[in-house]
Each structure stands twice: as structure tokens, then as C-alpha cells.
Write a protein that binds this DNA or RNA. Structure first.
Length: 575
RNA sequence: GGGCGUGUAGCAUAGCCUGGAUAAUGCACUGGCCUCCUAAGCCAGGGACCGCGGGUUCGAAUCCUGCCGCGCCCGCCA
């Protein structure tokens, strides 16, 4: 109830001044109520007690008296146990809703535009996307959508693993198995495994592979040709998965490690110039302050390995330079697992020390926990390997399909298949996005597809029911946007408040990079609608109420659809 | 050993940043509701020493501190 608070504050101000209470003493006290059954916003007066030498009850009563009728356009006031409670009244709610329904953005304001790079997904070339890429892809995509909606210039970056020593063996294997120019329809998992096996068992092959790495890194055209072939084939696979998932990433977002290859020596030079580079056991390293290893010695960030190769810290630093100089980015978000927290903390520190990033630029690691199986261990396939993402997505869609077939047999095959896709993919994404990303989360088919509780299908169902009301009433959604909205029933009021809270929770989700804060609010909205739906008939009501409730339905549906969209989830019109 | 994260009903979680009232939600459980807009729903009910101990405060799930459990990370993989 941010809007109510902003409306109330100025009017309360003069009353508080008259009572001798300074702004800084009460501004923070006035906030959302901890319990919505008491009020929408509340002010505990206990801390004022000492200074005013009055009981909290007395203070609350005096403020109440001082306000008199001044807030009657906004809310009703009451005082109990030293709390001053403000509950939005229908008049104020109606006005807000009236503005809201004409607003395409549903009350969501635009932020001052920043250029924000979101680094997410990051699969490896010549390997299948697996469950380890799921969370980064889902969370990152949601952050991209939310930030874009708030008006930012969002640059998606998919930092694919497309460079490094494994490519020697992959290229040699590619040459071995395929003399001609095409590698279509190759199973990447088998291809990689075979190459690895040959590398481990065949000395000649291993030697060739090492030589190939050197050739590739010196941009030998033949090597690059085969390398490109591997990359292209992998992109086909990545794009297939992204499309299936409804993720925004495409080839324009690819920013592989190879892109930064040519900048690596420059990174070393700059660190050298900054006087940060040290030699340690043959490697060139930086020692960021405050980090120690197990033995208590300073912990290095390795810039250049003893064998002359670079590793990922160097690439990350090169990437930062590129983003500042070429992308003009002001903020970086790294949607990468929590196990890399230390790595990023060190990289950011070094980048700042070396002057790659000034104070105006923010770099934020957005970590997340593991995907666990129902057995309580890290999710793995039956054979113990990583679960392929494509298989996971297909299973979700299949499972959703059979549930829908059972629940709603009247749908055509095409309809059912389309809805199954939205539900299955939505279920996986929502399961990931509906809890705090820092926690590990358990991948549980039963739960995410149960269509009960805090799940995507529950929210989608609420949306579908609203669409159904409109088709039943045979009314165009746009036509209700001119309706006069008037809420009076307690369920209408609850629904109205849930609708109006959307912008506030979206902002909360964005400032903490926590999509679950939005998800939680959407679930509350769907719940409020569920109750409204049971107790407040729409179609059979008198004209005024009919139109007003239809408008509430429209607002609810638009908010759900927009909210789900910001989580990367589609909302079918039928289920 | 050090660092980061985490611990809230049988289970899964929100709330913790920014202290406030009877700790919220879902699953599961118990009972009720379809001649009525999709029952994939709704209503009601039981169920919690918020990991443990100290401290700060008028007031602590929330802040500080010390323990304990779990997860991850700690030198040339990314």
C-alpha cells in the first residue's frame, strides 16, 4: 500500500508537527501493516512515548483526534494498543482502480534508464544444456524481462564456453569422424564423450589434440573452420532449448569466451601497470585483500597460468573492460550459482582496484542454490549424469499434456498441445522462481504440476477462468475499460488491494533481484480472485455491479498475465 | 581452520535488509460447499518454545554475539 502511504503522509505531517513530533521521528514508523486484518498501513507510537512522556495509546489517540476528518478521502483511521491504523476506503480504492484500468502499464512506473548487462545461461559448446543451466536461464530471463519493463536498456549476454583446451580434442575428433563438411544431427553428448574417451585412451590422439589447441589459439584458419562448425551446431541446440523454454536469448546475445580472447594480454598489461600483478609459483596472479587459503596464506586470483594459458578470471576481467568501454553499461548482473561467490567477489575487487570499473558502475553477483532431487541430493539422471534440459522440458510438457487430457477432454489436440507447453514450461519456471533463489530447491514433478497451491498452473487457472467469464458474457475486454468501478464487498476490496499492489512488489523484486517477491504477490492476487470468484457473481449481477466486477476481472487478468510474463510464463486463455 | 549461504507446524516455503500487534502461505490432515461465470476451485478447523544460549530494546523470527546442524567454496577447470 505504497500509494496510500504517500497520500497519507503529507496530511499527517501537519498534525505531527503540531504535536511536536519531528519528521525523522515518525516517517519510518508509518509503514505497511504487518497484519492486513488490522489495517493497510500502520504507525506504532511506542517509540514516541519516552519523548512525549505519554502512553503510546494516548499518543495514537491524540494523532487520531488531530487528523479528524482530514483523511476521509483516503482511509478510515483507528487506534488500538498504541497503533494508529489506516485502512484504505472504497472511495480511494475506486479512484485508484479507475486510473489503473486505463493504464497500459498497470501502475508500473518507468525507472531512470540505465544500461544493464545481464549475464546468464552460459552453456558449453559441444555439450548438451543440462539441469545445471536451468536456474541461471530461468532467473536471468525473468530479471531481463522485469528490468526491460521498468524501462532499462537491458543487454542480454550469454557467456558460452566456446574456447579452451577441450576444443583441441573436439576438433580432432570432428576431423576423425567426419571427413566432409557437415555435422548435422550429431548427438553432442555422445560426440563429447567419445572425444574425451579417445583423448584418455589414445596417446596419438591426445598429442594431436594438444597441437590443435595451439593451432586454434593462433587462429589457424582450418582449426577455426572446424571450431566454428562446432559452435554453430551447438547454437542450433541452444536455440532449440531456448525456444522451447520461451527464453529471450538468441544468437545476438552470444558473448562467448572466444570474444574476449584477444583482450586477455591487455588485461595482463593493465594489471601490471596498476602494480597489482605478482608472480607466484610460475603463475601471474593478483592478491586481493582479505582472502586467505586453507593455510592462511593470501589467496591469489590467477590471471595467467604457469603454462602461459589464461583462465576464466582473466576472461571475466576482459569482459568487464569490454562492457564498460564498448557496451557503455552501468550495471552488471551475473546470474551464476552461489558456489562462485568468492570468485566474483575477488574479480570485482580486482576490477575496481585496477580501475576497470569506477564507482558509478555496479557489479552484482546474483547467486542461486542447487537444484535438488526428491532424494535430497543434487538432481541427477538415473545413470548419475546431468539431466539434459531438453529431456526435462519435454517430460514437463508430456506430463502436463496427460493431466490436461484428463481434466478437460473437450479441448482439441492442437489446443491441448499448446496449453500443455505453457503449463509444463510454466510449472518448471515457477517452481524455480517462487522461492528465494538463495535456497536450494527441490525439483518435484508432483508438486510443480499438482495444479494446487503456489504453482504456475494455479495462477494460470485463475487467469483462464477470467477469460472464460468474458467469453461467456460475450464481452470484449477493451469495452470494460470505460466502466465505473465501485468496490464494496469485502472480497472486492481484497481483490482491489491485491491488484493495486502489483507495482510495489515488482519494484521490490527488482531491487533485490528476487523474482520470488513478484511471484508471491501474484499468488496472493490469484487467491484473492479465487475468493472473489466464489462469492461475487459477475454475469448474473445488476448492470452497475456487473460492469464494475467485469472491470475488476479485467484488471486481475491483465495483472496476472503481465506478472507471469515478467516471470517468463505464458497465461493461456483456456485450460 | 577460514569464507559465503542456510535453519520458521509432518513436509515445502514467505516474512529478516528497514524490529511493532494473535508469526503468514501452500501441500498433507479433518469437516463442509457443484440445479449457480471452469470443483484444476472455495469455506471452516487442528497443527510452530521461528536451530540453541546470551545481549540490545518499551518491544526480537527480524539487530548484535557465542555455539550447533546442513550446503557450497577456499591455487593454476569454468
Amino acid at each position: 500500500m505504497r500509494e496510500l502511504l504517500l497520500s497519507v503522509r503529507p496530511i499527517l505531517s501537519s498534525v505531527m508537527t503540531n504535536l511536536g513530533i519531528k519528521e525523522e521521528e515518525w516517517f519510518d514508523l508509518l509503514d505497511s501493516s504487518t497484519d492486513s486484518s488490522f489495517a493497510d498501513i500502520a504507525m506504532p507510537c511506542h517509540s514516541l512515548s519516552k519523548k512525549l512522556k505519554k502512553s503510546p495509546m494516548q499518543i495514537a489517540d491524540e494523532i487520531l483526534e488531530g487528523v479528524g476528518e482530514d483523511l476521509c478521502d483516503f482511509c478510515t483511521l483507528s487506534s488500538i494498543n498504541g497503533f494508529l491504523n489506516f485502512s484504505a476506503n472504497s472511495k480511494w480504492l475506486n479512484e485508484c482502480l479507475q486510473n489503473h484500468i486505463l493504464d497500459q502499464r498497470l501502475g508500473v512506473s518507468l525507472d531512470e534508464q540505465r544500461t544493464i548487462v545481464v549475464d546468464y545461461s552460459s552453456p558449453n559448446v559441444a555439450k548438451h544444456m543440462h539441469v545445471g543451466h536451468l536456474r541461471s536461464t530461468v532467473i536471468g530471463d525473468s530479471l531481463v524481462r522485469m528490468l526491460t519493463y521498468k524501462g532499462h536498456n537491458v543487454v542480454r549476454e550469454n557467456h558460452i564456453g566456446d574456447w579452451g583446451t577441450p576444443f583441441g580434442m573436439l576438433i580432432e575428433h570432428l576431423i576423425d569422424v567426419n571427413g566432409n563438411d557437415t555435422i548435422n544431427n550429431v548427438d553432442l553428448a555422445i560426440f563429447y564423450r567419445d572425444a574425451r574417451e579417445k583423448f584418455d585412451s589414445n596417446v596419438d590422439f591426445a598429442d594431436r589434440s594438444r597441437e590443435r589447441v595451439v593451432k586454434m589459439q593462433s587462429n589457424d584458419p582450418d582449426s577455426i573452420y572446424y571450431w566454428q562448425m562446432l559452435v554453430d551446431q551447438s547454437l542450433v541446440h541452444f536455440n532449440e532449448v531456448y525456444q522451447m523454454m520461451g527464453v529471450l536469448l538468441n544468437n545476438n546475445d552470444i558473448a562467448g569466451e572466444s570474444k574476449y580472447e584477444s583482450l586477455l594480454s591487455e588485461v595482463v598489461e593493465k594489471l601490471e601497470e596498476a602494480g597489482l600483478l605478482h608472480e607466484s609459483q610460475g603463475a601471474q596472479v593478483v592478491f586481493p585483500e582479505g582472502w586467505y587459503n586453507r593455510e592462511g596464506n593470501p589467496l591469489p586470483l590467477i590471471i595467467r597460468k604457469a603454462d602461459g594459458g589464461y583462465n576464466y578470471a582473466t576472461s571475466d576481467l576482459a569482459c568487464i573492460i569490454d562492457r564498460v568501454q564498448n557496451v557503455g553499461a552501468t550495471d552488471f548482473l551475473y546470474v551464476v550459482g552461489a558456489e562462485q561467490s568468492q570468485h566474483f567477489a575477488m574479480v570485482f575487487e580486482v576490477a575496481r582496484k585496477a580501475g576497470f570499473m569506477n564507482k558509478k558502475i555496479t557489479a552484482t553477483h546474483v547467486p542461486f542454490g542447487l537444484v535438488m532431487g526428491t532424494d535430497g541430493k543434487k538432481l541427477a539422471s538415473r545413470t548419475g549424469g546431468a539431466v539434459h534440459l531438453k529431456d526435462l522440458l519435454m517430460e514437463a510438457i508430456e506430463r502436463a499434456n496427460s493431466i490436461i487430457a484428463e481434466k478437460n477432454p473437450s479441448l482439441s489436440n492442437d489446443e491441448r498441445n499448446e496449453i500443455a507447453r505453457m503449463l509444463g514450461i510454466g510449472a518448471i519456471k515457477y517452481a524455480d522462481l517462487s522461492t528465494d533463489r538463495n535456497n536450494n530447491y527441490t525439483f518435484d514433478w508432483e508438486k510443480m504440476l499438482s495444479f494446487d497451491g503456489n504453482t504456475a498452473p494455479y495462477l494460470q487457472y485463475a487467469h483462464a477462468r477470467i477469460c472464460s467469464i468474458f467469453s461467456k458474457a460475450n464481452i470484449d475486454r477493451k469495452d470494460v475499460q470505460r466502466a465505473i468501478i465501485s468496490v464494496s464487498d469485502e472480497r472486492e476490496i481484497s481483490l482491489a488491494k491485491a491488484i493495486l499492489s502489483f507495482p510495489e512488489y515488482l519494484d521490490k523484486a527488482i531491487v533485490s533481484n528476487s523474482p520470488h517477491k513478484l511471484a508471491t504477490q501474484l499468488h496472493s492476487l490469484a487467491q484473492a480472485f479465487g475468493t472473489f470468484y466464489e462469492f461475487c457473481p459477475v454475469i448474473s449481477s445488476e448492470t452497475d455491479i456487473f460492469e464494475s466486477r467485469l472491470a475488476l476481472c479485467d484488471l486481475t487478468a491483465r495483472t496476472l498475465e503481465q506478472g507471469l510474463n515478467l516471470l517468463g510464463i505464458e497465461a493461456p486463455k483456456k485450460m
